[in-house]
Amino acid sequence: MTKGKLLLLFIGAGLLTYPLLPLSSDYVLHVMTLAMVYMILAMGLNIVPGFCGLLDLGYVGFYGIGAYTAGLLTIHYGLPFWVIVPLAALNGALWGVLLGAPTLRLTGDYFAIVTFGFSELVVLFLTNEIWLTRGPLGLPGIQPITLNLSWLNKAWYFEFYEKTPNFYIAALMVALVYFIMCRMEDSRLGRAWYAIREDPLAAASCGVNILNYKVIAFAISAGIGAVGGCFYARWSMFLSPDMFKFWESFLVLCMVVLGGLGNIKGALLGAVILVCLGEILRESLTAIGLPAETRFIAYGLIMVLIMRFKPSGFFPAVASSGRSNPLLIDLQKRLAAGAAAKEKSRDSAA
């Protein structure tokens, strides 16, 4: 247990110092940053199918909304990244509520179809509302992330064109989202979601307002998706509607399922595996003369194989962050002490 943790710490520290090494390559840094974008997305999506048990096929719509919100606010108003992140999150959450409140009454498949339709609508909007989004031409020339500390020191104004600072900002955002997710998971809110996933009728009998909590889940998930899009916009400095096609939703869903529905660490691992696999496939498929899009066949194949051999993903445990809760650790100790005392009294009686 502790050995595994040590190893994990070691790997983590190694990865974090990678950009500082003299032989670090820009390509590897790019892939690592991309993997972190997908980590944010996968953690956000995980809330809806993982915690609440609802199939969401339109997640990329919120990603797109967040990305374009960030892109447009940057181009037209020149707002700094740190202001845009909460604005994009709020805008994503707002659309999450607008879509979720009327449609979350639908069950299972119907809801999935509605979300799918929503993400297609977002792409249509981005393509056709040329006055706002420039349509298929895309949004070029988005300013990179900046950090303005000139109020501290005249020289401290940074524009992050290079890969390295973007890598660290992405890492920071992943850490922040991870932190929020863990705290939500081990709270009244997270427990209400689990109850809904396990048995909606029993959840309602425990006093959980199912519709409300589904809408909250959907809004938070959408907000996190928008935050991912927000970073993506300022990092890639270019947006176009076809970046937000349905395939992206499917890819993120694959990540969540691969890692284990409802497990935050699983979502992280799933993102890393599928982003790396995507890069490998893109290279190897073009090498043998197939179009790069055929990689989606490989993703489909992976889904089939997971369903067959590991139906609950790599990390099947749900609600796992609760185990490190000091209250529960304390309770466990008390229970163990109680059991030991009982044993003892039985021994002395015998």
Partner: peptide, 11 residues
């Protein structure tokens, strides 16, 4: 989970 209806903490 059953304590949900008697408690209040939000997001």
């Amino acid at each position: 989970i059953a304590r949900h209806c008697r408690t209040k903490a939000n997001f």
